[in-house]
Simulated scan of single mutants.
Amino acid sequence: MPLKIWNSMMTTHSPVTAALPANPNKALWEKGDFTRIAACMRESGEELIASLEVTPGMEILDLGCGDGTTALPAARLGANVLGVDIAANLVAAGNARAGQAGLHNLRFQEGDASCLGDVADESVDLVVSIFGAMFAPKPLDVAREMVRVVRPGGRIVMGNWIPRDPTLVAQILRISAAYTPPPPEGFVSPVTWGVEATVRERFEAAGIRPDDISCKPAPYYFRHPGPPVEMLGLFRDYYGPTMNAFEAASRAGNADALQAELAALFESQNKGGADDTVIAATYLRVIVTKA
């Protein structure tokens, strides 16, 4: 890893992992194995990065990076990339993927999107967070932290699932929520990041001018070389929110009903064949430019 990225992006504080605030999402995302879901998302991740005009030497922070669905393509284009995720297992998986790919300009470490204490002010050209930072608690803090670390003229690019959207992931989250206990008092739904007015409010509160915020829906494709029910099995067994839903449904004797409802969703949205799953999920693509 070139020294430039670590000298410019990191402060002299202790490592992020030493002082993480309590975050209930840590247990959620470490519970399953999101790498199994991410395998269905690689192609769209590469396409998204290709659209962002990433250039060699660019300093990129991938926030809520998982095991590198967008971080690896950015590093392959020559950017210096730091991936930060709340889940230790995904950080380990990302570092393993970077090592296997020989990407010395890419590193993953544990951290919280709402408290990036070790990332220096105005040290990043681009923050990417695709279905990552939206799940962090304290969304106003998340917006402030992303704005803080971006240099003037730099960008923040988020991908956020949209509430009540009829496509796959929003419906998975909606169906799963119906089978799980209500969230604790004060809980802010992650999909509020998929509401343009809310996104604008959060970034304007962090000092961004209204004209420097752009939001538009875009498709993200999930691909699996097998039937839809097989891809559903990956979500049931490895995706934290659906795992929790199935556990709660099993306790209530409703697991079969949950399975049937999700199976119907996956089948109806599949645009591939009987043994080839291709499902589009609509998300809100947010681009913020820091003046």
Rank of each mutant, 00 (worst) to 15 (best):
G45D: 02
P2G: 11
E46T: 13
A248F: 09
P182G: 03
G207M: 07
W29I: 04
M231E: 12
L173S: 06
A206P: 00
A27P: 05
A205H: 07
L63T: 04
D121E: 15
I162S: 03
G253W: 02
E46F: 07
A113N: 10
D118H: 11
K4P: 02
C115P: 08
R164W: 11
R202Q: 07
A136T: 11
G45Y: 01
V150K: 08
L61F: 07
P241F: 00
I156G: 04
R148F: 03
L52S: 00
D118V: 12
A178F: 04
S114G: 15
P228M: 00
P184V: 01
P184T: 02
G273H: 00
D121K: 11
D237N: 13
A101D: 13
V128R: 12
G45N: 01
F222T: 06
G154T: 06
A120H: 04
P56N: 09
I60Y: 06
M10E: 14
M134L: 01
L173Y: 06
S114C: 08
A88D: 14
Q269F: 04
F108I: 02
V286N: 10
T277L: 05
P137D: 01
F222L: 15
R42L: 13
S250T: 15
T198L: 10
N244H: 13
S176R: 06
A245G: 00
P139A: 06
E261M: 02
A74T: 05
N95E: 12
T35N: 09
T167C: 08
T70E: 13
A177N: 07
T70I: 12
S8P: 00
F131I: 15
P181C: 06
L72M: 11
T198F: 10
A120M: 03
Q109A: 11
V147F: 00
D237E: 14
P190W: 04
P73D: 09
P2W: 10
T11E: 08
S51V: 03
V199T: 04
F203S: 08
I287F: 03
T70N: 11
I37N: 02
A264L: 14
A101M: 10
S123G: 00
V191M: 15
T198Q: 14
V81W: 00
P166I: 09
I37A: 03
N160E: 09
P73E: 06
M41N: 13
R155D: 13
K216I: 09
V286T: 15
A22T: 14
I213Y: 08
G66T: 09
G207F: 07
D237W: 04
G66E: 10
N80D: 14
G153E: 07
E30R: 10
V124T: 12
S8D: 15
G68N: 06
E267C: 11
D85V: 04
V169F: 14
A113G: 15
P73S: 01
T35L: 03
A18I: 09
W193K: 01
D212E: 13
E247V: 14
R236Q: 13
L72Y: 08
D112K: 03
G132T: 03
G78K: 05
S214G: 10
I162K: 05
G111S: 03
L232T: 10
D121V: 11
